[in-house]
């Protein structure tokens, strides 16, 4: 049975089959990766471009990033705080879902874009405290309508940054100070420890 199968694989028909399978798997993988980078369908066509362009700070709607693990998604009350003073709110068809939700007293079912799996325990606070700006990871929101994820958020990406920021080089330690070196070493240990994110 197995022998027969191998013979078939070696036949031209079989070779073509193998090539097609490999190509299918490759296209599958490529498509999968592509899919993860597509902005999902959101309950409302929220334009980050417009809001950020108006000068609204990221932390106004996502305040949790400063204090803890999750930045949070804005409550509809927060939207309404500004929008009730804007005449267009009642007339625009794009804003109708918000008006309806507000009248019904329900929230939006947002689809988070930048996600890490359940076995990763990511906390925003130390990243903000370390001087990272939102756009370092989430991209420039003045350029997108619905939030998009600019990069594959996988472990390699996390570790690259953790490593480059703790490397004992000119950029991190311009004077070559021994104390700073030790600090960097300690940080590096912590930031490359499995137990820092996985538990």
């Amino acid at each position: 049975m197995i022998r027969k199968f191998f013979e078939w694989v070696l036949s031209p028909m079989g070779r073509i089959a193998v090539v097609i399978t490999v190509m299918s798997l490759f296209s599958l993988a490529a498509y999968g990766v592509y899919q993860t980078q597509q902005p999902p369908e959101q309950p409302i066509q929220f334009t980050h471009k417009l809001h950020v362009g108006l000068g609204i700070q990221c932390l106004y709607c996502h305040p949790g990033a400063l204090r803890g693990p999750s930045p949070g998604l804005p409550t509809i009350n927060k939207c309404w705080g500004c929008h009730q003073q804007i005449a267009k709110t009642q007339t625009s068809p794009l804003l109708k879902p918000m008006v309806d939700a507000m009248n019904a007293g329900v929230g939006f079912m947002w689809v988070p874009v930048a996600q890490v799996p359940d076995f990763v325990h990511f906390t925003h606070r130390p990243h903000v405290a370390a001087g990272l700006n939102c756009e370092n990871c989430h991209g420039d929101m003045t350029k997108v309508t619905i939030a998009e994820n600019p990069q594959v958020m996988n472990m390699g990406w996390c570790l690259n940054c953790h490593k480059s920021r703790t490397e004992d080089n000119f950029q991190n330690n311009p004077t070559g100070d021994a104390g700073v070196s030790a600090q960097l070493e300690k940080k590096r240990t912590k930031l490359t420890d499995c137990g820092t994110c996985h538990y």
Binding site: P117, C194, G195, T196, H198
Partner: peptide
């Protein structure tokens, strides 16, 4: 099941 150098604990990395 690596050893955590930072916390000196035995870790269990579920995803691995």
């Amino acid at each position: 099941t690596p050893h955590s150098p930072a916390e000196d604990l035995n870790l269990q990395v579920y995803n691995r």
